[in-house]
């Protein structure tokens, strides 16, 4: 099966997020008041082949632990959805 994968990489709580705090400080200049807790991460999207969703998740988790995140400072949230295949469209 093919899965569409979206990995959201976030900084762990307590890790400096100067981008987030700078955005938060800039928003009131445009009149957006009352915004708090701005944090900036990154999103990584790709497709993966695996026999089933469980093994796909395991594979992506391994990628996150060993490469896509630095576990000392980052954490990841993984979203998996079965990819729309040509066969399904037919």
């Amino acid at each position: 099966m093919t899965f569409d994968v979206a990995v959201e990489v976030r900084l762990r709580p307590g890790i400096a997020d100067p981008e987030g705090s700078t955005i938060e400080r800039a928003l009131p200049a445009l009149g957006f008041e009352g915004v708090s807790g701005v944090s900036v991460g990154k999103s990584i999207r790709f497709r993966v082949e695996a026999p089933d969703e469980g093994s796909a998740r395991e594979l992506v988790q391994d990628m996150c632990d060993r490469f896509l995140t630095n576990p000392v400072i980052e954490e990841a949230e993984i979203a998996l959805t079965p990819a729309a295949t040509a066969a399904a469209v037919d």
Binding site: A16, S21, T22, V72, I73
Partner: peptide, 18 residues
Amino acid sequence: LTEAHMLPGALQKNAGSK
């Protein structure tokens, strides 16, 4: 060297945004 796990820890973005 930290990313290669040849040294422990990590270098995060500077405190104070600069």
